[in-house]
Design a binder for these strands. Structure first.
Length: 297
DNA sequence: AACCAGGACACAA
DNA sequence: TTGTGTCATGGT
């Protein structure tokens, strides 16, 4: 009997009751880049722990590689406590947003670790999501710490610390296929490691101040700052404007006209309300789903 | 085989 | 302040 086929120990397993939770949409919507679908379940690394997630009706079953009594690290990451209804009902009742929320109902925002999120999005600029995943995979494999996995599984690695990446040469980083982003990542890692920016302190700041602090980091402009504010710190008014969101807003709200990004930012603030970041994520994922559908025809 | 990808930055006008 | 070229890589 192969170990990987054995049922996991009860001490390694838990179940979260959820409503309106689309795990697939959540893990494939370009917030996090390390989840892999394998044999009917999602496998990933949260912090320094391996975890497997299986979704069944109204519950998520999680399996860890080691005995676990406190699961708050995962409950927090997956945001299983929050309910979607107040968010969706806060949205303006317009056609585009209705279509987007229907197309991927149950899509959630994760709550990720700030350094991994920051570094990942520094690597994301003008890259397709598949390529971002490849870069991060190489980076973790080469510079991340080994993470315990169940018997029979391939070795996996934690996302490398800022301290570790600060020690890398630019050439080491370029070898991970990140191109011109290498000096940005190295500089960012150095700043974070030296506490020139204290990522842990940004939770307590007002959004605008946290945004300014993030944008002081090399390679971090408005868009990447907004991603980190939204996906790591939980500032749900943050509204990342990337090429997909530009397309969505132009086509769906501005009759295809060419609109400046700054104006789109102001529009999002006034139009989508306090959970604008959620609206953004629905529009983003919706546009990418649409493209997949039309590409198949 | 061109075109484009969850952008940021230095520089020009 | 706003517009343009550049950066590196590879998917579609």
């Amino acid at each position: 009997m192969r170990h990987s086929l054995l049922a996991p120990l009860a001490e390694c397993q838990t179940r979260f009751a959820v409503h309106d939770y689309d795990l697939d949409a959540t893990l494939t919507s370009g917030q996090a880049f390390r989840w892999e679908w394998s044999d009917g379940a999602w496998e990933g690394i949260v912090g320094d722990r391996w975890v497997q997630l299986a979704f069944s009706k109204d519950s998520i079953v999680a399996v860890a590689s080691e005995k676990t009594s406190d699961w708050t690290w995962l409950a927090d990451y997956l945001q299983v406590e929050i309910s979607l209804h107040p968010i969706l009902s806060s949205f303006p009742d317009d056609v585009p947003l209705r279509a987007a929320t229907q197309a991927c109902r149950g899509l959630r925002l994760l709550r990720q670790e700030p350094w991994e999120c920051l570094a990942s999005f520094i690597l994301s600029s003008t890259k397709q999501i598949v390529q971002i995943r490849q870069i991060i995979h190489l980076l973790c494999e080469r510079f991340g710490e080994l993470v315990p996995v169940p018997l029979g599984y391939q070795p996996v690695y934690a996302f490398p610390s800022a301290h570790r990446l600060a020690q890398c040469s630019e050439a080491d980083l370029r070898d991970c296929k990140m191109g011109f982003r290498a000096p940005y990542l190295k500089a960012a890692a150095t700043m974070v490691d030296r506490l020139d920016v204290d990522l842990a302190s940004l939770y307590d700041l007002p959004v605008d101040e946290a945004r300014i602090a993030l944008m002081a980091i090399p390679g971090v402009g408005p868009k990447i700052a907004d991603c980190v504010l939204l996906f790591a710190y939980g500032f749900q008014s943050a509204f990342p404007v990337d090429v997909w969101v530009i397309k969505a807003l132009r086509e769906l709200y501005f009759r295809g006209r060419r609109v400046k990004i700054q104006r789109l930012q102001r529009f999002s603030k006034s139009h989508f309300g306090p959970f604008a970041g959620y609206a953004q994520q629905y529009l983003f994922h919706y546009m990418r789903l649409q493209k997949k559908i039309t590409a198949k025809q």
